[in-house]
């Protein structure tokens, strides 16, 4: 195994809450996952899940409104437990309103959450600790 590849990691970064930040979110995620020993298909899926969650912050927590606010994304991998945290200061998320489209309902929208739930093992919304309002946690057990 490449000596520069590791299986435990914890990195975080702030991004302006904007659709134009999504490419930077993907770049950050790809860079973090380039340091760990995961297969490329799984890395691509995880990047998609992270970008979809970030997109949901832009679309739902901030309702596409322009802001200078930042969101923080933290990716941690510890002994096969991957945890991705999203922190934002937008509108509080009502967990009961978070739903993905039904599988036979072909319409635009609701797909992002559907993808996240397909890729990750668990999706948990928490009230954020100050200064954050929302704290979303995505987790997945990684089998090497």
């Amino acid at each position: 195994m490449n000596s520069s590849v590791e299986n435990n990691i914890s990195e975080k970064k702030d991004f302006v809450v904007s659709s134009s930040s999504l490419k930077d979110v993907r770049s950050f995620s790809r860079e973090v996952f380039s340091k760990v020993n995961l297969n490329q298909d799984l890395k691509d899926e995880l990047v998609l899940a992270i970008a979809e969650a970030a997109q949901n912050i832009v679309k739902h927590a901030y309702q596409n409104q322009e802001t200078d606010d930042k969101m923080e994304i933290k990716i941690s991998l510890d002994n096969g437990e991957l945890e991705i945290g999203f922190f934002d200061k937008g509108r509080p998320v009502d967990n009961s309103n978070v739903r993905h489209r039904k599988i036979d309902d072909v319409k635009p929208g609701g797909l992002g959450t559907f993808f996240i739930k397909q890729i990750m093992d668990a999706v948990v919304f928490k009230e954020g600790e100050k200064p954050w309002i929302n704290h979303l946690i995505l987790t997945k057990k990684i089998n090497y």
Binding site: L48, A51, E52, P108, L111, G112, F114
Partner: peptide
């Protein structure tokens, strides 16, 4: 090289 749910929505809307 990459398409997310927003891109898929464009494909669905175009198809419909």
């Amino acid at each position: 090289q990459y398409m997310d749910s927003s891109g898929i929505s464009v494909l669905i809307e175009s198809h419909q």
